[in-house]
């Protein structure tokens, strides 16, 4: 990643001065981002009255943790949160089980249809959801199972997995192609069958790629909106994104701004925390996999 050598050089003020406009532009943008997030977090600890009077950061009436308790318990956020956690975790695991083997054979063997499958997957990444949603909905609605919450959850997970199959496969494919073939050759000489070689040697070696793509899949599933909106039938199975939308809608009548901002923070926090710890990996993944320059 960081290829530049990290030598502590003395601050070259002349050089820094030349770069000043750049610093100013980026700093303003970053400052705006901080104010945006900071204020929302502040508001979530305050009261609706203080929000309207513009005294969010004075906390005159103390810090109101009960906004979070209220959002978590009475507004169903806990249900949405747990749903999303379950959907994202299961989808991520399934995606690796399905896509890693496929990516491996696509990267290692030449066979009829290899390029076709790869091109199909790349093209699928550009297909708008509107293009696939109607037949899928027709299919699922025809089975009449969306009233059963377990079946509804299964359908959602199936969709999350299916939508992310092309991206995950292509990402891991690039990763596998960069692994040296000599490992398999050595394993073959020692008499290890190819399938076993994959599970015992190649998959563990692909771990960095698997972690990166899993982070992306987690974020994608957590934030997925369109499909969830159409396929999640009841409050019991809704994901955070849809749940939050419903809450904001009802918020217009209750006027509980502080509670709403608390819900926003709860929804926003998991992927944000993930990002704070893993931003280097995520950024390297954006430009590394799937996207060809």
């Amino acid at each position: 990643m960081a290829k530049e050598k990290k030598v502590r050089e003395r601050v070259n003020w002349h050089r820094e001065l030349r770069l000043a406009p750049g610093y100013i532009i980026l700093s303003l943008w970053v400052l705006f981002t901080f104010v945006l997030l900071g204020w929302v977090v502040g508001a979530s600890f305050s009261t609706s009255k203080e929000i309207f009077s513009g005294t969010v950061f004075q906390f005159e009436s103390g810090i109101h943790l009960e906004n979070y308790a209220k959002a978590w318990n009475t507004s169903n956020v806990s249900v949405f949160f747990m749903n999303s956690l379950v959907y994202a975790s299961i989808s991520c695991a399934l995606l690796i089980v399905i896509c890693a083997p496929a990516a491996y054979v696509l990267s290692r063997f030449t066979f009829w249809g290899n390029r076709l499958v790869q091109n199909g997957f790349v093209a699928a990444m550009g297909v708008p959801a509107t293009m696939i949603v109607l037949p899928l909905f027709g299919l699922v609605a025809g089975w009449n199972i969306l009233n059963v919450s377990l079946a509804n959850r299964a359908v959602l997970i199936f969709l999350y997995v299916g939508i992310n199959v092309p991206y995950t496969t292509i990402f891991l494919l690039t990763f596998f192609s960069n692994l040296s073939k000599s490992f398999e050759e050595a394993a073959a000489i020692d008499g290890c069958p190819p399938m076993k070689t994959f599970w015992k040697i190649m998959l563990p070696m692909a771990q960095p790629g698997i972690i990166t793509v899993t982070i992306f899949n987690f974020i994608n599933v957590w934030n997925e909106y369109f499909m969830s909106l159409i396929f999640a039938n009841s409050d019991k199975v809704k994901s955070v994104a849809i749940g939050l939308y419903g809450m904001i809608n009802s918020m217009r009548y209750t006027g509980d701004y502080a509670g709403m901002f608390a819900a926003v923070v709860i929804v926003f926090l998991p992927t944000f925390v993930l990002y704070v710890f893993l931003s280097e990996k995520i950024i390297a993944g954006v430009t590394g996999g799937g996207v060809k320059g």
Partner: peptide
């Protein structure tokens, strides 16, 4: 060649990883 390149980059990319519903709500309501 600016300093804190990785920090700037990470913060500017950040809106892409958080829930768009949350982000849109921040803009709309705040």
């Amino acid at each position: 060649g600016i300093r804190f390149k990785n920090v700037f980059r990470a913060i500017i990319y950040m809106p892409n990883v958080v829930s768009a519903v949350a982000l849109a709500t921040m803009w709309l309501q705040y």
